Amino acid sequence: MQTLSPAVSLTSAAAPAVPGRRLAFSQLAIAACVLALCVVVLGAYVRLSHAGLGCPDWPGCYGHLDVPESVRHIEAANAAWPDRPVEPEKAWKEMIHRYAAGTLGLLILALAVSAWRRRHEPGQMLALPLALVALVLFQALLGMWTVTLLLKPLIVLGHLLGGLATLGLLFWLALRQSGWQPRPAEAERRRLGGWALLALAVLIVQIALGGWTSTNYAALACPDLPTCQGRWWPPTDFADAYLPWRGLGINYEGGVLDNEARMTIHVMHRVGALLALAVLGALAWRLARSLDAGLRRGGWLLFAALVAQLLLGFGNVLLSLPLPVAVAHNAGAAVLLLVVLGLNHLLHPRRLPA
């Protein structure tokens, strides 16, 4: 009477395996997220060290899967690309970034395959891993166009935003599949959930403004603070500053805009920074006063990330854009994005199927 049937025994033995498999999926998502952060920082380093055209072709480099280094290979590459002679240091920067991005693509493909195989398990997300595969394929196209269209700002900005979107979506996937879902009180979620969404929207706009500043080489257009070339509001040219497309065949390395257009872009990035500081600072202050200990910690973490990013922005201007500070400023934007996404995860709990 008390003996379990074979079917019940199999079900009972298999049940504990589902959380374990979900944990493995979450760990793979976390690994992909860490690599995505590295790819974003590497991409910023390549762009800011003027190595974006270190390899004039794609996906290889001067027709090789690595960088040509022997005298014979370098001579052949220089003959094939006479307008872009081999600079091994820049070429290796670009290829290391491509290797890392390719590895990330394989990890994301593994996540999608794993999600598809486990699609019938309760709580397993499928649409997001599949969307990430599509995003990575589009990112590869943007990477190719970045080179073939000679650093066109609209393409480079799209590639930057795509990289941050990949990072953010991987982090969101890892959070949603991790099983870590503290639930603040309903009143706290209602009071702060809208602020968290607003902060995310404002931060995305500010990141886009910063990306446009970088891709148009406008970071040094205003070398003073808080004024710009000695004026609170310098001469502006919005039409030229935000013209999205200037035709084909233009080499954008070093930028093509005049001084007024670059000042316009820089000033608007500062205006966006003030708005982001106000909104994210207000969210951090509200979180720090929360009754929930987890939300209070999140508020202080947001405050620390915001202050660090502000100081890095000041450093870029006052120190004339030193490479380590500029790269750290890009990394700081990515960290801010992750912090705000984590807060949205806390304030908008996932509703699992019954």
Rank of each mutant, 00 (worst) to 15 (best):
V46G: 03
K90E: 04
R47K: 09
L65N: 14
P68G: 07
K90L: 08
W92R: 04
V46Y: 01
V71I: 14
Y62F: 07
P82M: 01
W92V: 01
R72P: 09
H73C: 05
Y99K: 10
L65V: 12
Y62D: 03
I74K: 07
D66N: 15
I74A: 01
P59K: 08
V86C: 04
H73E: 15
H50C: 06
G60M: 09
A77I: 05
H73L: 14
W81H: 13
D83K: 10
P88R: 02
E87V: 14
E75T: 13
G54C: 08
H50S: 15
A79E: 10
L48D: 01
E94R: 06
E69I: 11
M95T: 14
D66H: 10
G60S: 00
A77N: 04
W81E: 04
K93C: 00
E87R: 13
R98W: 12
H73Y: 10
Y99H: 12
A79F: 03
V71A: 15
V67Q: 11
G60Q: 11
E94Y: 03
D57I: 08
W81N: 04
L48K: 01
E94A: 13
P88Y: 03
P68T: 06
A79K: 07
P59L: 12
V86Y: 00
P88S: 03
P68L: 09
G63Y: 01
R98H: 09
A77P: 00
I96L: 15
G52W: 05
S49V: 04
P82T: 09
K90N: 07
A51S: 15
A91G: 14
V71N: 14
K93F: 02
A80T: 06
V46E: 04
E94C: 10
S49W: 06
W58H: 12
L65G: 13
A51E: 07
P82F: 02
I74H: 03
I74L: 01
V71C: 10
M95H: 13
V71K: 15
P82E: 00
D66V: 14
P59N: 02
H50F: 13
W58P: 12
A80M: 10
S49D: 13
A77C: 05
K93I: 00
A91Q: 11
N78W: 04
I74G: 04
P56V: 10
H73M: 14
C61F: 07
M95F: 08
A80D: 05
K93W: 10
V67G: 10
G60Y: 11
P85N: 05
I96E: 14
W81K: 00
P59I: 06
M95G: 14
S70G: 06
V46F: 01
K93V: 01
G63R: 02
G52A: 15
G54N: 14
M95A: 14
G60A: 00
Y62P: 00
L48C: 01
D83L: 11
V86R: 00
M95K: 15
D83H: 09
P59G: 12
A91E: 14
W92N: 01
P68V: 05
V67Y: 03
V71E: 15
P56L: 11
S49P: 05
I96W: 12
H97R: 09
I74E: 07
